[in-house]
């Protein structure tokens, strides 16, 4: 927090006297509430558990009926996910089996051999995750940055035609993407942004901008103006108040916007499929591509989806403090 917050007219809230916190039995209702939340969370996570379990099931176990809760876990899914394989000719299988007997095969190679396959190399999945990290990361940063700036301006300044501009910004998200795909494709090829990291970063930034601007404006609107005004009177410049007063207060909003923008950019599928080929392709289009080899490779899809989920969960978890924090200025009196 900025130094102003400490030196300024802050009256720290030592103890809340909100009704819901002091009424009799608040503790008991709190426990009940925690229990309900836990229950809801568990129900909502069942499909995630299924995904997790599926990632370690053999194909036969996945299609067992009734569905298996307990099963012998296998790493087959990971093999499918991280390697490219080819069916080995019978002669080659014998050769490999000899190598296996000599203990010269690693775990993945052994698992592949068990289904008569030979690993030919790593799969493109890893490279695509890296692309996803670059593209989603950079575009999230850009869209949050621009969203914070524009959101603040729209919230605090009285510019002419503000509502129309805001509506224009919102409307860029209204046209179904399906229709703009082909013109965008033509444009990208013309400008040299096709299959290019910068192109994808800009595209996702644009895709998220309307959301981040609106959201940040919403958050800024919630923050009382009194502090800024006080600071301005005290001789702070507008930029100083923005950086030292407003930004610290809007951390919770910035965190939420970051999480949302990241999720959208991270999971975007249609543009990634159409606007990239090999160089800049992200992971989402490669997850469903594990279908279609004579049966759904559920384990690989599940493992791929989970692996793809982990970075977002980590980032959200890291930001949870800010996501859930109340605005500390709440105690200001008017």
């Amino acid at each position: 927090m900025a130094s102003f917050a400490e030196s300024g007219p802050r009256r720290p809230v030592v103890e809340s006297i909100r009704v819901d916190k002091v009424s009799p039995g608040a503790r008991a209702t709190g426990a009940v509430r925690a229990l309900i939340v836990l229950l809801v969370a568990l129900i909502m996570l069942i499909p995630i558990y299924v995904m997790f379990a599926t990632a370690f099931k053999t194909r036969i176990d996945v299609t067992a009926s009734p569905p298996k809760i307990f099963f012998q876990p296998t790493l087959e899914g990971l093999v499918l996910l991280f390697t490219d394989r080819a069916l080995a000719a019978p002669a080659r299988v014998q050769e490999l089996q000899q190598l296996e007997a000599q203990g010269k095969l690693n775990l993945f190679e052994q698992l592949a051999l068990a289904s008569g396959q030979e690993i030919t190399g790593p799969s493109p999945y890893v490279g695509r995750i890296v692309n996803s990290l670059i593209i989603a990361g950079a575009s999230t940063f850009l869209s949050v940055l621009l969203g914070v700036l524009a959101g603040y301006a729209f919230s605090r300044f009285n510019l002419p035609g503000k509502d129309d501009l805001l509506f224009f910004i919102l409307s860029t998200r209204m046209l179904p993407a399906v229709v703009v795909t082909i013109p965008l494709f033509l444009m990208f090829r013309q400008v040299g942004l096709y299959d290019n990291h910068i192109g994808m970063i800009l595209l996702y930034t644009v895709f998220n901008l309307s959301f981040s601007v609106w959201l940040m404006k919403g958050f800024f609107d919630e923050i009382p103006r009194e502090y800024e005004e006080a600071a301005l009177v005290d001789g702070y410049s507008r930029l100083q108040t923005f950086f030292k007063i407003v930004l610290p207060q809007s951390v919770s909003g910035i965190a939420a916007t970051t999480v949302f923008c990241l999720i959208f950019a991270w999971n975007e599928y249609a543009f990634a499929l159409m606007m990239t080929a090999e160089k800049a392709r992200t992971a989402p289009p490669s997850i469903p591509s594990m279908i279609g080899r004579g049966g759904v490779e559920w384990a690989a899809i599940a493992a791929g989806s989970l692996g793809f989920l982990i970075p977002v969960v980590i980032i959200t978890f890291a930001l949870r403090k800010y996501l859930l924090r109340g605005v500390t200025f709440g105690a200001i009196r008017q």
């Binding site: 909502m44 996570l45 499909p47 949870r320």
Partner: peptide, 20 residues
């Protein structure tokens, strides 16, 4: 922790969600 866990469904790719 629980709040973060509740957010997980939203973090999945819609394509994967449909499939699963």
């Amino acid at each position: 922790l629980i709040t973060t866990l509740i957010l997980i469904p939203m973090m999945l790719s819609p394509v994967v969600v449909g499939l699963f």
